[in-house]
Computed example of a mutant assay.
Amino acid sequence: MMSFINRWWLVSAMLASVLLISACGFHLRGASEFPFKTIYVQGSETTPLGVSLRRNLKGQENTALVDNEKDADVVLDILSERPEKVILSLTVQGLVREYTLNSYLTFQVRNSDGKLFLPPTTIVLHRVISYNENVILSKAAEEAMLYKDMQGDLIQQVVRRLSVLKMD
C-alpha cells in the first residue's frame, strides 16, 4: 500500500510534468490552412498515393478539390512517383541481410495559366528493413506496411508545403 507521502510525490510529479508540457507551447497540429480556395490535382489518378492525396485534400475544411483545371486557383502536378528497393547489406554467404526502401515524389504547383508557385520539387524518404528468407511472408507484409507509412509521410509533407505556399 502506498503511503500518503509517496502518493503526494507521485501526484506532484504528474502535475509538474503536465504544467511543463503545457508551458512549452506544445499543441496538436490542427487542420492545414491553405492560401487558396480551390485546387486541382494533375496526374496519379489511380495510384495509391494519388488516391490518398486526393482524399486528404477533399477533407480540408477551407479548400475545395475541383475536377477541372480551369476552375482551380492552383494546380498540383504530380510529375513522378516511384518506390525503390535497394540492397543495403549482405551476409558472409552473399545473402541479403538488409534492404533500403526509398520512395520518391516529384511535384510542382502552378496556376492554370502556367505560372509556377512552387518549382519541381522532389521529396525522398528512406526506410531500412532487415531481411530473413525464413520469414518471407512477414517481411513482405512489413515492406508493404513501410511503403504505406512512407506514402502517408509524403502526403503530409505535400500538404505542409501547400499550406506555406506564396501566392505572389
Results as ranks from 00 to 15, higher is better:
residue 101 L to I: 00
residue 148 K to Y: 14
residue 47 T to G: 03
residue 58 K to E: 08
residue 3 S to C: 12
residue 140 A to S: 02
residue 108 Q to D: 06
residue 70 K to L: 07
residue 27 H to N: 06
residue 46 T to H: 05
residue 9 W to V: 00
residue 164 V to H: 03
residue 140 A to R: 10
residue 2 M to L: 04
residue 71 D to E: 12
residue 153 D to E: 12
residue 41 V to Y: 07
residue 97 R to N: 12
residue 104 Y to G: 10
residue 87 I to G: 08
residue 133 E to A: 12
residue 83 P to R: 14
residue 21 I to H: 01
residue 127 R to I: 01
residue 89 S to M: 03
residue 33 E to A: 15
residue 23 A to P: 15
residue 151 Q to W: 07
residue 131 Y to Q: 14
residue 103 S to V: 00
residue 43 G to H: 06
residue 139 K to N: 06
residue 164 V to M: 07
residue 4 F to P: 11
residue 34 F to M: 15
residue 95 L to P: 04
residue 63 T to L: 05
residue 60 Q to L: 14
residue 142 E to I: 09
residue 18 V to W: 00
residue 45 E to N: 13
residue 104 Y to S: 12
residue 52 S to L: 05
residue 73 D to I: 15
residue 113 D to N: 12
residue 35 P to C: 03
residue 127 R to M: 09
residue 96 V to A: 03
residue 56 N to T: 13
residue 117 F to A: 12
residue 112 S to A: 09
residue 107 F to K: 00
residue 17 S to N: 05
residue 138 S to R: 11
residue 117 F to C: 14
residue 102 N to D: 11
residue 28 L to C: 01
residue 63 T to H: 03
residue 27 H to R: 13
residue 160 R to A: 10
residue 84 E to F: 01
residue 115 K to V: 06
residue 71 D to K: 13
residue 58 K to D: 08
residue 84 E to Q: 07
residue 94 G to K: 05
residue 144 A to L: 12
residue 111 N to T: 09
residue 53 L to N: 10
residue 10 L to N: 09
residue 62 N to K: 15
residue 102 N to F: 03
residue 131 Y to R: 15
residue 102 N to E: 13
residue 108 Q to Y: 06
residue 6 N to H: 07
residue 64 A to G: 04
residue 76 L to N: 04
residue 165 L to D: 05
residue 94 G to E: 06
residue 21 I to D: 01
residue 20 L to F: 01
residue 63 T to G: 01
residue 110 R to D: 03
residue 101 L to Y: 02
residue 93 Q to W: 08
residue 59 G to M: 06
residue 12 S to N: 04
residue 66 V to E: 06
residue 158 V to P: 14
residue 28 L to K: 05
residue 139 K to Y: 02
residue 103 S to G: 04
residue 47 T to I: 03
residue 64 A to W: 11
residue 77 D to M: 02
residue 120 P to D: 09
residue 98 E to T: 14
residue 142 E to H: 06
residue 106 T to C: 02
residue 100 T to R: 06
residue 34 F to Q: 15
residue 146 L to R: 11
residue 13 A to T: 00
residue 141 A to M: 13
residue 87 I to P: 00
residue 29 R to N: 05
residue 20 L to W: 02
residue 106 T to G: 01
residue 102 N to Y: 05
residue 100 T to P: 02
residue 129 I to M: 09
residue 110 R to S: 04
residue 59 G to H: 07
residue 19 L to G: 12
residue 66 V to K: 10
residue 46 T to M: 04
residue 42 Q to Y: 10
residue 6 N to I: 01
residue 65 L to E: 11
residue 43 G to P: 03
residue 135 V to Q: 12
residue 64 A to F: 10
residue 15 L to M: 09
residue 60 Q to R: 15
residue 54 R to Y: 00
residue 5 I to R: 13
residue 80 S to D: 02
residue 101 L to R: 03
residue 93 Q to I: 05
residue 128 V to N: 13
residue 61 E to I: 15
residue 129 I to V: 08
residue 80 S to F: 01
residue 46 T to F: 02
residue 97 R to Y: 08
residue 20 L to R: 00
